[in-house]
């Protein structure tokens, strides 16, 4: 399968991040790795694009962030740990419903005639 990239990905990035965070909190790089693992390598995401999306969602109250406290384990700059909020959980279920409806309609249209 060709890689999924560009606008196709950008339109669903926030929903996918919320979904990843539902499985547990994580820092930026961690979220990216989980997205790539779940996408089985088919997501061609410019890694930097994740951060503006995270900041937008944080501003909207969908996720909350804190600086990692345990810096003893690693050297270098601190990372921010993101977690889903209650508002984010509601937004995620709304996104899922929208996606199911969207995928159902497009699926019916795109199906080969029998």
């Amino acid at each position: 399968m060709d890689n999924i990239h560009g606008n196709l990905l950008r339109g669903h990035l926030e929903g996918m991040v919320l979904s990843v965070l539902e499985r547990g909190e994580g820092h930026g790089y961690d979220i990216l790795k989980r997205l790539q693992d779940l996408g089985r390598g088919a997501l061609a995401l410019k890694e930097g694009s994740l951060y503006p999306a995270l900041y937008r969602m944080e501003e909207a109250g969908l996720i909350r962030a804190r600086w990692e406290s345990d810096t003893a384990k690693r050297r270098g700059p601190r990372r921010r740990i993101y977690a889903l909020t209650e508002k984010g959980r509601k937004e995620l279920s709304r996104s899922r419903e929208t996606w199911r409806a969207f995928a159902g309609i497009i699926g019916r249209i795109m199906e080969e005639p029998t």
């Binding site: 930026g28 790089y29 601190r78 921010r80």
Partner: peptide, 27 residues
């Protein structure tokens, strides 16, 4: 190079700097 020209508070830019640097170092 990415963050300096952004029009935002120093606090917000520092957050971006530290987070992007952490990401780049891991990569």
């Amino acid at each position: 190079r990415i963050v300096r020209p952004i029009r935002a508070s120093v606090l917000r830019k520092n957050k971006m700097r530290e987070e992007l640097l952490a990401h780049l170092e891991t990569a």
